[in-house]
């Protein structure tokens, strides 16, 4: 047994060493760097009272929350529909819905440009119909559409997997007791999918908080938090503020995921 324990330690050691050197140590250093500006440790207090940073933080949180809500509604309906009905073309439709899975944010940004940019289809259509060109890719609305595009595929997959695992006997029991289809949805299906919604929603929120590629592609003037960090670091060379904001951003997303995991009791991890 002692020999086994030693072997296990040897197995884990390289990964832990790697993590310590290239993740934990840099994070601590970043926390420290946040305090190297002229204001020292109060940099953290200052960014939380600075109107521009605070406004950016709020904008990011509201955007992430609304993307999460919209994604859950859309993916919930589509996911449950695909999981619970059988028809010709279902597999193809599922494949379409999951095609953009793991598209990087930059590419998603480009997809939004093709939809709603200056040469986009929506512009063409509205131009043909009303004479005015509707272009919203380069605004917060464009970012919202981009994050939806990004979040729907993985959320649909999560919802489908959970919906297929729902015990059909629960629904049959509810119906045997006289529940109408809507009551079944309310009392059986939504509670049954709660864990999946919680997990997928947390990932969606955390990803939208930190996603950067889409905003970077769409425009530099959308001041969501990652863009502000990037600007402070590259243009402003304001390393202390960039570090402090990064640390704040990391702490928020990590806390959201940790809270969701505690609530769901399962495993929740973000991606992208």
């Amino acid at each position: 047994m002692g020999q086994d324990r030693l072997a296990l330690a040897v197995l884990v050691a390289p990964a832990i060493a790697f993590l310590a050197a290239f993740f934990l140590f840099p994070l601590v250093l970043m926390l420290r760097t946040g305090a190297t500006g002229p204001q020292g440790w109060s940099t953290y207090a200052i960014i939380l009272s600075n109107e521009r940073y605070l406004g950016s933080l709020w904008k990011t949180v509201v955007l992430a929350a609304s993307v999460t809500a919209a994604t859950l509604v859309i993916s919930g309906i589509a996911g449950v529909f695909l999981a619970r009905t059988r028809f010709r073309g279902r597999r193809l439709l599922t494949a379409f819905l999951t095609l953009p899975l793991a598209f990087p944010g930059v590419v998603v940004g480009f997809m939004v440009i093709l939809l709603a940019g200056r040469q986009g289809v929506i512009g063409e259509l509205t131009h043909a119909v009303t004479g005015d060109r509707l272009v919203f890719a380069y605004s917060l609305a464009g970012l919202f559409v981009g994050y939806l595009y990004f979040s729907i595929p993985r959320t649909v997959l999560t919802v489908m997997a959970a919906a297929e695992k729902l015990d059909p006997a629960l629904e049959e029991a509810a119906r045997s007791l006289g529940a109408s289809p809507w009551v079944v949805v309310r009392d059986v299906i939504i509670p049954g999918l709660k864990g999946a919604f919680l997990a997928a929603g947390a990932i969606c929120f955390a990803t939208a908080m930190g996603a950067f590629g889409t905003a970077f592609t769409l425009a530099t003037q959308i001041d969501v938090l990652p863009m502000v960090i990037y600007a402070e670091f590259t243009v402003g060379a304001n390393i202390a503020v960039a570090a402090a904001l990064s640390f704040l951003l990391g702490a928020i997303t990590w806390a959201v995921l940790a809270a969701a995991r505690t609530a769901a009791g399962g495993t929740v991890a973000a991606a992208g």
């Binding site: 993740f23 970043m30 950067f212 990037y230 990064s246 990391g250 997303t253 995921l257 991890a269 991606a271």
Partner: peptide, 21 residues
Amino acid sequence: ALVMPVAIPGIATGLALILAW
């Protein structure tokens, strides 16, 4: 600890890496 790098936005991790290494 292992899962943390996924929970923290890439831009934050990237910045931390630059600062440290």
